[in-house]
Every structure is written in C-alpha cells, then in structure tokens.
Design a protein around this nucleic acid. Structure first.
Lengths: 341, 341
DNA sequence: CTGAAAGCGCTAACAG
DNA sequence: CTGTTAGCGCTTTCAG
C-alpha cells in the first residue's frame, strides 16, 4: 500500500486484475452476472490496493449522495440532541449519512443551498416556521423535505408531528381534575407550531372545563432557555396571588422555573405544581422530577426517515401529514397525582 | 422557473447567455478576466434559470467537497452538543459543512469510510481511543484527521486537548487547601485519555500534598451517565466513613452524584463537597451549582478547524500537539471556597 | 478576454 | 459473462 500516492481508482483495479474497468464496477455493485473466478480476481486486487470507490464520482452518476441534511434549533435545548441521536441511528440503518445545521437562522438556508447543489439528497427540518420563505421556494423546486416536530400548515411537503394541541388539553384537563384553579402559563415564541398548538390546546381545555386563565398569570419567554424560564417563573411567583400550578410550554423553561422556586425556597409540589412539555432526559432526574408530556420521538424520527426515503426514490403520493399521540408523564412536580380512571 | 424539469446546468446558462460553458464557470468562480458586459449577461441568465452549480461535479473536479466529518460520543452527554454547536459555527464561518456521526462505536468507522470515499475532506474526532485501530490505518492513508478532546499519544495527526492532568491537579490542590481530607473519587472508562489524565493529575496532586486516597473511596462508572453517577455516589455515601468531598471525572456523573445526595436528604456542600469536570451548561444551574473545571471549548474547536484546514489545503508541517489550560469554576457545591492567593 | 477540448471516477447501456 | 463506449456537470489547460 503506497502511502504517498493518490488513492487507487477502479482503473487501477482493472489493470491489476486484468479485466475491464466496467467489470470492476459490476463486482463492486454486486451485479449478478460475473464469473466467480473473475470476481475473486477483482476482489483480490481491491484488497491489495486497499481500494474504495470514489463517492463523489458515484454520486454524480447516480444523482444520489446518501447524505441527508438535518436542521435543528439551538443544540442547547436537549430535545434536539435527543432527536439527533435517534435520527442518526435511523439514518445510519438506512445507509444514510447525517449532515447537521444548527448554529443560527441562516442554517436553514445553508441546508437548502446544499440540497440545491445536490450535496444532500433530502432534508429533515425540525424547526420550520411560517417565516421560512426560502424553504417554501425550495419546495417548489421539488427538493425532498420532511418537516418534523414543528410543521407549517398548508405547505406541500411531508409533515410529522405529535399532537401538541391534545397535549395542551391533557395538561389542562389533568390540572383541573386535580383541583388546581389558579393557573399560570409560561409560553414561548409563537413562530413555532408546536408552541402555538400547545397553548391553544391548554387554553381551549381550560375554557371547556369552565376554568378561567388570568392574563396576569401568563408570561411569554422570548426564547427557550433555562434563564428565561427562571425569569418568567420568578415574575409569576412574585405575584400577590401566585398560581397554584404553572404550565411551561417546554421542559427547558420548566427546569428554569423549577430552579426559580428552589432559589426562592419554595417547594414543588407543595407550594405550587409544575408541568413541562417534551420529557427531555433531565426532567426525570430527582433534581426536577418534572411532570411533562412525552412526544413519541422514536416513531416520529423513524417515520420521517422512511417518508424522506420514499420521496428520494421517487415514490409519488400525496404529502403525508401525520400527527402522533403523546403521553403525559406524571411525576413528583405534581405530587404524582393520578386522576381516577 | 420550471418546477417539473431537471435543475439547470452550466450549459443551459451558457446557451441562454450566448457564451461558452467555460465562461459560465469563470464567472461563477470569480475568475478576473471576464468582460463586465459578458459577466452581467451570464449572471442574468443564472438568475433567470435560478441556477446553482452542482456540488458533486465540482467536488469531483476539485477533489474537495467542503464537508467535514465530526465524530462525537453519546449526544446524551451535554458536552458534545455544546462542542457541536461551537464547531458547527466555526465550520460554517470557514464555508464548511458538518457531517455528524454519533450513534455507536461503528460511527468512527463510518466517518473514516466517508473520508476514504472522498465524501468528506477531513475528520474531527472527539472520541478517539487507543482501540481505534481503524483510525490508525486511516492516518497512514493520509486522511486529514484532527483529534480534539480525547487524544492518543504518539499518533501521527494533529491533536488538541485541554490540560486534563493539570485540571485534576488543580482539583486536588483546591480540595486539600480547603481542608478536605477524606476524599472520594468517581472515575470513568479509562479508554478516554481525558479521564486517564484527570485521574492521574488528581492522584498525583494528592500524593504530592501528602494526602492519602482510600481505595475504598474510589468507584469507577462503567459509562458516563446520570444514572451511573447516582449509583456510584450512593455507594460512597453509604460508607460508614463517607468522604467529605467527592471528585467526579465529569459533570454528568457529578450531576448524578448531586441527585444521589438530594435523594438521601444530604446537603451539598454541608454534608460533603462535590466537584465535577467539563462545566456543561447545567452545572451552573441553581439545582446543581457545581464547582467544576472548564475546558476552553471555543479555542479548542477554533484551533481544530484551522489545523484541519491547513491539512486539507496541503500545508505541510509537523503534527501539532496542543494542550490548552483550564479554569476551575468555583461554585456552591464547594461552598464557594476560594483559597487565599 | 473567450472558446474548444480534455478529463475527474464512476455507472449503465450496448454489443459481442 | 465481459469489454467498449458514452456521458454525469464541472474546472482547467491550451489556443486563438
């Protein structure tokens, strides 16, 4: 094996095995009609020169790179690493590679650029918003895109989410059944469909149960972060008539809220109940023991990959809009209360 | 813009702008010698057909994809998302794309495969171990690889780490200066150079200060997880003569240890002190308020990217082995104690 | 300054 | 079963 030369090409193999270059290609792509003896000679040469086919050349011919672009939001929200981990697994099983964009809003554009330059076969987007106009343009160019987690109504692409509206309702229902009446709400950026749906479900749920939600007990966090959850909860807890339960539209905010209570010497659930959304790994830790809504991440990601594969291989069908059910995870932050069935 | 046809190629542009295909290429690659008027005609055509050059074709010609492979360990350890985030930023600034492998041990191999297939220009590896024999083979094929975080002594590639040995020493020094004498240690898999160095530094530090480390107070976690930290700390806290300070070789373990204390109704720092390593974001949260050692992630990642770029562009020089200094972040888990300067 | 022409390394007809 | 041939879309000489 030469360490200084260029990598071997299929021509080098052909020469060494005394066959045509086409035959080398056949052997490597598992074409059936190759004489065993020839195949062996080729494989021997492949080993001898430590040959690997050039992926770019193959991609150019086949119009398929095997790369999938994944756009996630700030990786500081543990939900996204969790999604990436599972997604990476599913993609690897499907023989695909994962390209990740995650640093800023510009990333969405970068991902689409890559798609348009044929550097990725398709895109899985976890953070689409109605503002993503570039994305919309790309869709019209038939770039295969699957929206997962956040979705955008009416857009011509496959979409995969959990039932955030129902999740919000479940929380409302749960808190009211438990006798909580003075409810607090910590919301987030409304550009995310997930957030809008959770909020709507929560509000509608309360309304249909005849429980009022005091606007004075509703705070919107400008971004998802521990710090913002901390600040928002602090504001609520400082109210003269503080809530007896707070629903945070995601776990990161809820963990911040939990720490706000801790800092004030308040006890959850004795002083107030706390509910989050996402069931990120830390929510189950004793430090937080947070009641929250779990999204079916494994199924969502698996479906996303297979939908995308269909699109890429040109399977034509209607755009699929799937909404999967969620589970309320009852934990200590709501005293483990379970309503009678 | 046709929505049903194939994407436009540079020939299409050439035809429309009535120039040769070569000229299109010149304009797009910013070649100086093109008449302004011609250039404008080409750019107009580019806009009109909404053209983007095909990245694969370009990559095949130039032998450069602009993709960098990054191998990280379990994304469940927040250190890695944190590294990815910064790395992604630096790579994007350098006009490079980030390909992530992270699901299993097989990922290291997959990354190297991708490199050998010319699908990535180089690799940043955060989780190398002496066991990575595939990696070693790849190095001999001149695949550009930078080791960051974990390093492997004597391997022919650029390596970039923080001074884990010194970090361990600093912790030992700090605890002893504060009067702690019965020390506990929660270690981890010794395949990681980071862990070996931290442990060695800690042990050597204690030894040079004349403080004994009871082997009965040393537990090794088989893997980094909250759960394992919890279990290990539980074992130490159940000892008849429990430690008055515990050093965990990384923060994830330390957070687990913190929760073990919480679950037992013990108070940190009143009942014992706790020190971690990495300064992941959560360590600063009130729930943990963990004293820990911070690695200079920004600088490490920035240097890694620029070293890799040098290798890729063929700048020849000795393999660079850099070790950057760490900072001890003093927080509540050690009662905010600061030794007199 | 611009066009013609030669490939990069591979796959996929098409002959034989 | 195997070799020959024709490109994929681009960059890069080399002429003019």
């Amino acid at each position: 094996m030469n360490t200084n030369s260029q990598p071997a090409t299929s021509r080098d193999i052909a020469r060494l095995a005394k066959v045509s270059q086409a035959t080398v290609s056949r052997v490597l792509s598992g074409h059936p009609s190759v004489q065993p003896e020839t195949r062996d000679r080729v494989l021997a040469a492949v080993r001898q020169l430590n040959y690997r086919p050039n992926g770019m050349a193959r991609a150019m011919r086949t119009n398929r790179t095997g790369n999938i672009g994944v756009v996630v939001s700030r990786l500081a929200n543990p939900l996204y690493p969790q999604m990436l981990q599972i997604l990476g697994q599913h993609l690897a099983e499907a023989g695909l590679r994962m390209m990740v964009w995650s640093t800023s809003e510009a990333d969405e554009m970068n991902a689409l650029s890559a798609a348009r330059e044929s550097l990725v076969d398709g895109i899985i987007m976890t953070t689409a918003t109605t503002n993503s106009s570039q994305l919309y343009d790309a869709l019209k160019l038939n770039v295969p895109v699957v929206l997962i987690n956040r979705v955008v109504e009416g857009w011509p692409c496959d979409q995969l989410s959990s039932d955030n509206y129902d999740g919000g309702r479940q929380v409302a229902d749960y808190l009211v059944k438990a006798g909580r009446r003075r409810l607090g709400l910590i919301g987030g950026p409304a550009v995310a469909s997930t957030i809008r749906d959770r909020l709507a479900g929560f509000r509608d749920g309360l309304a249909s149960l005849g429980v009022a939600l005091d606007p004075g007990c509703c705070v919107d966090a400008p971004m998802f972060s521990h710090q913002n959850g901390f600040a928002a909860a602090s504001a609520l807890l400082d109210l003269a008539d503080a809530p007896d339960a707070i629903f945070c539209v995601n776990d990161v905010l809820a963990l911040g809220a939990c720490d706000a209570a801790r800092t004030r010497g308040l006890n959850v659930p004795n002083d107030f109940w706390l509910v989050g959304y996402d069931d990120i790994e830390m929510s189950a830790w004793p430090a937080f023991d947070l009641t929250t809504v779990r999204q079916p991440l494994t199924r969502m990601t698996a479906d996303a990959v297979s939908l995308l594969q269909d699109r890429i291989t040109g399977v034509m069908r209607e755009h699929s809009i799937k909404v999967l059910p969620n589970d309320l995870m009852v934990r200590g932050s709501t005293a483990g209360f379970r309503p009678a069935a």
